[in-house]
């Protein structure tokens, strides 16, 4: 199969703590892949290790055929990876429009993508002059995703898109993410198994810093034992 992202046995330390102790993630082109696991298992660190915010000490991260581990985050991102962090990280002192413009990699990205973005999230268009502070949680999440869409990214890393959102807004977010998957490949970290199972085609389960199980989501949904063991959900 054609993998756009191939993470091979990475080990990542944060300070002296050995957080990732051998994680493999293979992401087929054009798919949605969910990273599953309990709190503190290392899902977010895996995303950060891919984009370079934490540097893996061992192992390889291959994006589109290039080894990227050890490169600086801005270089890795510039190769075509969009990052939507947990808690959104909207820039408070910037307006919504500036938040989007900041994500430009070549001049005019924002103007080019504007229509696409506002089609996906019509709410953002009327908020354009507001500052990041005045947005609700759902609006911040939309903006965080929109920000990753301004540049031409072939891979989107999305951390906890449903966290702290009302069910109606989660629905909206899910349909948006589904729409996006036709344009680019998506890696998703999701606590809410129901959301993850409806969105993703593939999954990787991370448990205490190891990737323990991977495969197709439709197989996992029927594997009650694995779900119970690794995710604690019924």
């Amino acid at each position: 199969m054609d993998y756009i992202l191939d993470v091979q046995n990475i080990h990542t330390f944060i300070g002296q703590y050995h957080i990732l102790q051998g994680v493999d993630v293979r992401v087929p082109k054009g798919s949605i892949t969910a990273l599953l696991g309990r709190n503190g298992a290392g899902k977010t660190t895996t995303l950060k290790s891919i984009i370079g915010l934490t540097t893996p000490r061992e192992g390889k991260v291959i994006f589109d055929g290039n080894e990227v581990q050890g490169r600086r985050p801005f270089e890795i991102a510039s190769m075509g990876i969009g990052f939507v962090p947990e808690h959104r990280a909207i820039f408070r002192d910037l307006t919504v429009e500036e938040n989007l413009k900041l994500a430009e990699r070549t001049k005019g990205d924002y103007l080019r993508k504007k229509e696409f973005i506002f089609n996906l999230f019509p709410d953002l268009q009327r908020l354009i002059t507001l500052s990041g502070t005045s947005l609700s949680g759902g609006q911040q999440q939309m903006l965080a995703i929109a920000r990753a869409l301004v540049a031409d990214n072939r891979l989107l890393l999305i951390d906890e898109p449903s966290e702290g959102l009302a069910p109606v807004i989660i629905e909206h977010m899910m349909s948006a993410i589904r729409q996006l998957s036709s344009e680019s490949t998506i890696v998703l970290v999701e606590q809410n198994f129901l959301v993850a199972s409806q969105l993703a085609e593939y999954y990787v389960i991370i448990e205490e810093g190891h990737s323990v199980q991977a495969g197709k989501m439709k197989d996992l949904v029927n594997d009650k034992a694995a779900i119970h063991r690794y995710l604690g959900a019924a």
Binding site: R72, P73, F74, A77, F83, P85, F91, D93, L102, A103
Partner: peptide, 21 residues
């Protein structure tokens, strides 16, 4: 814009593809 954003969250600015250093 980069400075104002970086004051709040350097990592996120870098993750957008900007050479913060």
């Amino acid at each position: 814009m980069i400075i104002r954003a970086g004051v709040q969250d350097r990592e996120m600015v870098e993750a957008l593809g900007i050479n913060v250093r």
